[in-house]
Amino acid sequence: MGAAARFILRRKGGKGWHWTDIVTWVWLTGGLIIMFGPAVWLGFSSFKTPAALAEFPPSILPYVTSQATVEGYDKPLQLFNAKMPDGSTRVLAEVRRIGIMSQMVDPKAPGEIVRININDRQPVRTLSFATSNYTEPFVHFDFLRYLWNSVFVTVTATLITLVVNSMAAFALSKYEFRGRSAAMLIILATLMVPLSVIMVPLYSIISSLGLFNSLWGVILPTVATPTGVFILRQYMLTIPDELIDAARMDKASEWQIYWRIVLPLTAPALAVLAIFSVVWRWNDFLWPLIVLSRRELYTLQVGLSIYSGELNVQWHFILAMTVVTMIPVVLVFIFLQRFITTGIAGTGLK
């Protein structure tokens, strides 16, 4: 730890410990635990059986108590490490418990019943990952359906966003026309209209268009993002106009100029927008919650929140499905983190 700390805190190193070095060290270590800890805890918990989840104090890794079928007993019996009166330890199966005494049998010789104080026995536990937490919701519940809905919404909305926003950005950056500044102004003004302000009338529009209880009702209101138009336009302004003139001299139609010249050159900005759009749409909650009321249409986020809000929460499934929901975003985070952080620092969007 000392070496690591010296490595981390090399700035004032050598001159002894300045108080800021200590604060830095505490803050970073604390941050590491607090920021990553919950997600890691979630990950481990998602592999525990319902019984292990109910345990208090909880163990970090997913353990299960071992059981054995013993001749003469219908149900499997739980195994314990029992301390015998003579001081030796044996693995015994518990038949029943009476008060503080436990009646146990040796699984290999089930004839004789041994009585042990419950404080003298420890359950036998083995590390085991309850993968059924993951497989069952897909088979017995609609989670596969939800997953598909989420993927569909995310992919479709992102594709439409990219096409529609880039077309608009092209018009707003490479053409002079009357009303251009008016269009820009409207977009700027509504940059800050949040869903929470317009959800009631938007709902009525969606229903009158027949899009209530339809994934398109979730997708369409999100695709004309002013933010997207903004980033793309900003980027397209840096493409020299001479290139477009050259293409016009080369007999390219305006659509070809958009498709073959401007779009390929906007690729970096399109990538940033695509990443953000994927994260936004994957994470959307309130609007899908309003538009989708039929179970088979739920997205993962809606499905999760509905299941977790039920009276009898089946935490083992919920936790596993939370992990599934988290995975795409974590992947995006791991592989595209640098892209995203510079994107945010540059544009202040989220």
């Binding site: 020299p240 001479e242 050259a246 293409a247 016009r248 001299m249 050159l265």
Partner: peptide, 28 residues
């Protein structure tokens, strides 16, 4: 411009940066 049958060479060359030289020549 496309139909006047003229060709232009620009000060900044205005070559399409994402295309190879061959594609640049072939585009028109």
């Amino acid at each position: 411009a496309a139909d006047r049958g003229l060709a232009m060479v620009f000060q900044s060359y205005a070559l399409y940066p994402h295309m190879s030289v061959r594609q640049n020549l072939a585009f028109g």
